[in-house]
Nucleic acid binder design. Structure first.
Lengths: 155, 155
DNA sequence: ACGAAATTGGACTAAAATAGTCCTAATTGA
DNA sequence: TCAATTAGGACTATTTTAGTCCAATTTCGT
């Protein structure tokens, strides 16, 4: 269904949480508590994020994690990149893989075209855009117009 | 990696093949031969495509499949829809699923925004765009400017 | 120096999604 | 009736994803 994995979703939640802590260090347990995700999962994801450079880490007691850049400067494309690997809609569109059917395959560059289009959409969305407004605002909005709730589910 | 499944890729190859046969009926074996895909796989996919209405079928001897609409009138969004289900980048963005974390989740409507953006890109691409030009054209293009080969792999 | 609180790296298992194959029934043309 | 074909679905194997846990290392505070 062209969906991102659950871990990527969690990873994004973690990044959003860190974005809300300004430059302060957060331990994995802090993040787990703040996001309501399981600690081992959070630990695993923070390691991935730290290795990618999107997040910096400080070891030892009182250590923790924090964003290395402002949320406005981190794109959704980067996040996807780090958490799921490069956007590549088919196996053919990865760099390493050489499709054996390629000389026969009628499906040409179009998936790549779609690929680029998606990537460009992703590059326009920043971590700061992913952050949900404070709850008060949402509730107020709900009271005024419950049907038009912008946070309801469904496409 | 935000990729479509292999079956969707195959399904697209099949549609492209049918698009190349004008309105003539193709049996599953014809399609398998034409696409170099395994016959059982092709049979399975054609059944899916037929059920969706994108492809029509005629049963019995000399039966087969054909597109029900012109390739120009079939969008990539529809194809994805039929082969992978509706584009829904997170579980939260499906209609049925009600995320338990929703009241707590800081990640708001942004994935849905991305969702819509991707869908709209997909709706601009038609089956007719997915078809690769005849080989002669590609080779000529290669001769003139090998580096700029639009069919090379890699993003 | 020691111990507590962290991150690091990676192994490991379990669960779920995907791919692929096959069988039986129904339909149709010759 | 027979051969060719689609229809529907069961079934298995493979691969991917999720999730947990352990042992090592680093650093702060006492």
């Amino acid at each position: 269904m062209l969906r991102i994995s659950r871990l990527t979703d969690y990873g994004t939640m973690i990044l959003v949480h860190l974005a809300g802590q300004d430059a302060g260090l957060c331990s994995a347990s802090d993040v787990a508590a703040g996001t309501h995700l399981a600690l081992p999962t959070v630990q695993k994801l923070l390691k991935t994020l730290a290795k990618s450079g999107l997040v910096g880490s400080v070891r030892g007691a009182d250590g923790g994690y924090r964003l290395t850049r402002a949320p406005e400067e981190i794109t959704a494309a980067e996040i996807l990149n780090v958490l799921e690997g490069p956007v590549a809609i088919t196996e053919c569109s990865t760099e390493t893989h050489q499709c054996e059917l390629e000389p026969l395959c009628q499906v040409g560059s179009a998936w790549q075209k779609i690929n680029r289009a998606i990537r460009s959409v992703m590059e326009d969305i920043r971590l700061s855009d992913l952050r949900r407004p404070p709850t008060e605002f949402v509730l107020k909005d709900l009271r005024q117009s419950p049907v038009a709730n912008p946070y309801s589910h469904g496409s």
